[in-house]
Nucleic acid binder design. Structure first.
Length: 265
DNA sequence: ATGGTAGTCGCACTA
């Protein structure tokens, strides 16, 4: 069976439920993983998603900040959320589907402006979060052979995941300490970068453009912060990926666009 | 080198 999974940092799901519905109607993924829903669970727009054909909802919300959710056509067998770095932040959800397939949805901390863990506690938090993910991968690697991890990782790991490798080497999201650490996370579970499986690393590819640019499209100073990784056992079933650049130009857009993967499971 | 925009039960914080 082929399934399609989408991941999208929506930057307030209540404000943007209209473009979520538009996206689901147009693309009809089986599963949508959202980050930065910016709402408590009770205010999550459940009805809109159920009516759009996504009756299975897992929500990890918090007031004002962060928050992740998974909306699915397929039922879940289990739902879990981990408290990473013991911060109490809503940055993670895990669901297992009925066939055993495992899906983790992450919103990794952005890390603030200064790439110094001593001067900047938010950067320290981000590094600790990534280190916990390394240990998590090592723990599960032997037992979880059919797993997918998606989300806003807030790291653009490759040279062509940013508009200028040289200019961004000291900019949080592309510093060597972060890209090396994300490499350790990837190696810890042998994750395959499903998007770069199809788009060669020599080709520029972005999933985020700052709101602060006067003309995001013309300047095109993007970064690839949103990712979909699969275990080696699933990599043989990879069918296609899409990164919906046009969504950045929609009415009242998120600063991130949806990233999608279709695979045989 | 700076400041630019967006969202959230605001008067600050996160991104």
């Amino acid at each position: 069976m082929a399934i399609t999974i989408a991941t999208w940092n929506i930057n307030s799901v209540r404000l943007r439920i209209g473009i979520v519905e538009q996206f689901l109607a147009a693309e009809s993924p089986d599963v949508l993983c959202l980050q930065e829903i910016k709402t408590i669970d009770d205010s999550f727009p459940r009805k809109a998603l159920i009516e759009a054909g996504y009756p299975h909802l897992a929500i990890a919300g918090q007031k004002g900040y962060h928050g992740v959710a998974i909306a699915s056509k397929l039922p879940f067998k289990t739902v879990e959320k981990d408290d990473w770095v013991a911060m109490g932040d809503a940055r993670h959800l895990r669901v297992r589907f009925e066939d055993g397939l495992l899906l983790d949805n992450f919103y990794i901390p952005a890390g603030g402006d200064e790439p110094d863990p001593v001067a900047n506690p938010k950067f320290d938090h981000k590094l600790k979060f990534l280190r916990e993910m390394v240990a998590w991968g090592e723990r599960r690697r032997a037992s979880e052979k059919r797993a997918i991890v998606v989300g806003d990782f807030n790291v653009a790991p490759l040279e062509h995941d940013v508009w200028s490798h040289k200019k961004l080497l000291d900019v949080v999201s592309h510093t060597p300490i972060e890209t090396n650490l994300l490499g350790e996370v990837q190696a810890a579970h042998d994750w395959v970068d499903a998007v770069r499986h199809f788009v060669p690393p020599s080709e520029k590819l972005y999933s985020w453009w700052s709101y602060r640019a006067a003309d995001w499209n013309a300047a095109d100073k993007g970064r690839r912060l949103d990712h979909i990784w699969v275990t080696p056992d699933l990599a043989g079933g990879l069918v296609s990926t899409r990164t919906l650049r046009e969504a950045r130009g929609w009415e009242k857009p998120s600063d991130h666009v949806p990233v999608m993967l279709t695979l045989e499971v």
